[in-house]
Structure formats: C-alpha cells, structure tokens
Design a binder for these strands. Structure first.
Lengths: 140, 140
DNA sequence: GTGTGTGCAAAGGCTTTGCAATTGC
DNA sequence: GCAATTGCAAAGCCTTTGCACACAC
C-alpha cells in the first residue's frame, strides 16, 4: 500500500516511530471506504493483532491528526470519525432522520468558502464539513 | 416575556404540562445572548430554584427540540448548545484555534442550500450549521 | 541508557435511564 | 385518581490520563 508507506516515512521524517500499531491504524484509516470511528479502527486492528489497545488507537489518531495526515469529522452522532487526507476529501450530508451519509463533491463549497473569507476574514476548514438535513427518501 | 408565554401555551396545546421547571428552562434559553449549553441552563435555573435537576434540563431540552422550539448545535467542543427558534437564527464560524464563535447572517448559505437540494435532492437543515476554521486573529 | 511508545486500568465529561415519589389536571 | 413529570442516583458512552513496563535508537 503506497499511501501507508508514505505515512510511515512521513512519521520517521518527523521524528515519530513508525510502530506496528501506528501503521495498522494508518492502514485501517486508509482502507476504510468512508469515514471510520476509533472503535471501528480498534476492532479491525485487533482482529489481526489482539494486543491492540483502544488508547493507542486514540493516541495515534491524535498524532496523525496533528500532523495533518487524517481529518476528524463529527457527523453529529456523538463520536468523531476519521478520514485519510491522502484519499482526497469531500463533504457530507447527514440525514437527521435515517442517518444516511451522502458524499458531496468538494468544490460545491468553494463559493461559500470564498464569500466567508472575504466578508468575515475567516478561513473555513474545508476538510471538516458536515451538513445536516433530510435525505431524498426521508423527505417523501 | 412574550416568547415564554407562547412556549407555555404551545406546550399545553400539545398536551404537555407547562411545569415551572420547563418554563424556567425555556426562559433560560430565550434569555441567553447566544447558544447556551445544558449545564449553563442548569446553573442559571438552579440559582433561582435550587431543586432543579440536570436530568430535567436535558429532558426538557429534548422535548423542546422535538417540538421544534429550540435547535441543537454542536460547536465541536463535545457538548451540545441550544438556541431558541423564536429568536431567529444564524450560522456560526467556530475557530479551531482560539474557540471564538462568529455569527454569520443566515442568507449566506441559501445558494449552497439550493444547489444541494437541486443536485442531491437533500434538504439541508439551515438551523443547524457550524463551520470550522481559523478566525482573523488566529490567521496572522 | 534514555526517551518514546504501549498496555492497562481508572477516571473524566457529557448525557441518558430506571425507578420511586410527586405533581398537575 | 391517574398519567405525566420530576429528582435522585447510577449507569452509559466516548475519550483521556497516569503510570509502570517495553521497546527502539
């Protein structure tokens, strides 16, 4: 997995050890179809490596997040979800009724971001956007 | 307070008792300058009514929220904040560095909402939007 | 060796729940 | 009187922290 190798070397470059635990967390994040929670990562990694500990998962995610290698998004369900920066990002529409999560192309928010930057001198973090509402099914 | 009277009659209309506890929670939400947390409401109400209990606050807020009388917003700090629907709403820019919360006029999101509705048939809940990023001070 | 990283267990913060007692209609 | 509502205490959920051990360099 090329991405993981990148992350691995990225870690050593920055003076962090690319430990097996860290690499397994990285792989889980990169292997996930979509945003993945700490617990999901934990369960996935633990299947291969039973000693894995949930605090290590959290600590690794915190580190990766600080380094800008993964993003954290709160989908409104009381837990944080993680996503690999390397995979390109997009935004999310979260249905408040059925919980469906719909991915949205990134560019759709650009005009809004530009306007907010201009009017409020506020730089919107475009890696961290979730909008809530009602999906097509639930609107019927 | 006119709003509170409205809420009070609203509650009885719908078959819910306008108990003192509920009315005090309503007043606290309406009296707040901005979004207020459950704990802030609790402390405020308890100052006048020492028996008040935090679970009653949560239960009341849940009810008010179901009835569409207050909105819940997660500002990304791990707790939910509440806002009276009667006071008109706006959106928020939350600085990820200093935590500042900047109010944004509601209309700024209208074009985006329209586009999402058209392209994804998803109805964005415009009462529930917070965008994260860096405020002007922290960008320097 | 020395500092970095891990595992474990415990605590932390916010929110929810079970249940008996109380209240309002 | 009866259902709705409250207070209390306990639990629940996700996440963080303290500390001793283990590991890498």
């Amino acid at each position: 997995m090329k991405q993981s190798r990148d992350m691995s070397s990225r870690l050593s470059e920055l003076g962090y050890r690319p430990t097996p635990q860290r690499l397994m967390v990285v792989q889980a994040v990169e292997g996930a179809d979509s945003h993945i929670s700490a617990e999901e990562i934990y369960l996935q990694v633990r299947a291969r490596y039973p000693h894995m500990n949930i605090s290590t998962v959290y600590r690794t995610l915190e580190l990766l997040s600080e380094l800008g290698l993964v993003t954290e998004t709160d989908m409104g369900d009381g837990r944080v979800r993680y996503h690999s920066m390397g995979k390109g990002h997009h935004h999310h529409l979260v249905c408040q009724k059925c919980g469906a999560i719909i991915d949205v192309e990134e560019s759709i928010l650009n005009p809004l971001g530009a306007e907010i930057q201009q009017k409020y001198n506020f730089k919107v973090n475009m890696k961290h956007v979730a909008l809530f509402g009602l999906c097509s099914k639930c609107r019927e």
